[in-house]
Design a protein around this nucleic acid. Structure first.
Length: 198
DNA sequence: CACACGATGCGCT
DNA sequence: GCGCATCGTGTGG
C-alpha cells in the first residue's frame, strides 16, 4: 500500500475484538485506557475516550463476590465482550464490559470519559452515552451500534494505579486505573500519582 | 412478601 | 463536608 492509503488506514481506529476482552480482568482494564467507547443512537454516534476504569472479578466488592451467581450478575459469568449495565442508588446506571472466560466472572467498570462526551464518574458515563440497564447483554464485539475503538495513549501518558471508589469490602485492593491528567477522572489519588517514577 | 442498602451524583452549607 | 433522591436486587421471614 502507498503512503497515502497507509495514512488513511492508520486514522481508522480498529474495533476491539473478542481477544481484547477474553483475558484477565486487570489486563483488560488497562487495555481499555485510551480506547474510545462508541454508542450510535439515532443518527449520531456518541463517543468518549476511556480514562478511568476499575476491575471486578470475584472479590468481596464484586457483584460476583465469592463466585456467587445471581439473576443480575449472570452475564459476568458468560463470554467476554458483553455489556453489563446495572442500576444503582435508585437513579444511576453503571457500564461494564465482561472479561475472563465462560464460568469465570469478571468485568471492567468504565468510570470516566474524555472527549466530545465528557464524563467523570460511572453514572455520568452512562448518562452521556445513553446507556441503561436495558443495554445489558449487547455484544461489544459484534453489535453494529455499540463498540470500542482501539485508542492510543499519547507519548509519556502515565497510568495511575490505586484503590476502587465507593465500595466497603476489599477497599484496599489496587484495582482502579486512570490516565494521569485526564479531566474525565472522577477522583484523583495524589499519593499514588506522587509515587510514579519519572 | 418485607426490608435494608448500594461499584453515585448533586446541591447546599 | 454532608445529606438526600429513589428503586432494583438480594436476603431472610
Amino acid at each position: 500500500m502507498d503512503a497515502a492509503s497507509r495514512h488513511v488506514v492508520s486514522e481508522a481506529s480498529p474495533r476491539l475484538g473478542r481477544e481484547d476482552f477474553a483475558r484477565r480482568t486487570v489486563g483488560g482494564a488497562r487495555r481499555l485506557l485510551g480506547c474510545v467507547l462508541c454508542h450510535r443512537v439515532g443518527g449520531t454516534t456518541l463517543r468518549g475516550r476511556i480514562v478511568e476504569v476499575e476491575a471486578y472479578t470475584d472479590d468481596a466488592a464484586s457483584h460476583a463476590a465469592n463466585g456467587k451467581r445471581t439473576p443480575r450478575n449472570g452475564v459476568m459469568f458468560g463470554p467476554a465482550g458483553i455489556a453489563y449495565v446495572y442500576f444503582t442508588y435508585g437513579m444511576h446506571h453503571c457500564f461494564n464490559v465482561v472479561t475472563e472466560t465462560v464460568g469465570r466472572p469478571g468485568a471492567v467498570l468504565i468510570r470516566g470519559l474524555d472527549g466530545i462526551t465528557h464524563a467523570a464518574g460511572p453514572a455520568l458515563v452512562c448518562r452521556a452515552l445513553h446507556l441503561t440497564r436495558r443495554d445489558t447483554g449487547r455484544d461489544i464485539v459484534t453489535d453494529p451500534d455499540l463498540w470500542i475503538e482501539a485508542g492510543h495513549r499519547h507519548r509519556g501518558e502515565r497510568i495511575v494505579r490505586t484503590t476502587r471508589i465507593g465500595i466497603r469490602h476489599a477497599a484496599e485492593l489496587p484495582l482502579r486505573f486512570y490516565l494521569l491528567g485526564s479531566p474525565g477522572v472522577s477522583k484523583r489519588d495524589r499519593r499514588a500519582e506522587a509515587l510514579l517514577a519519572d
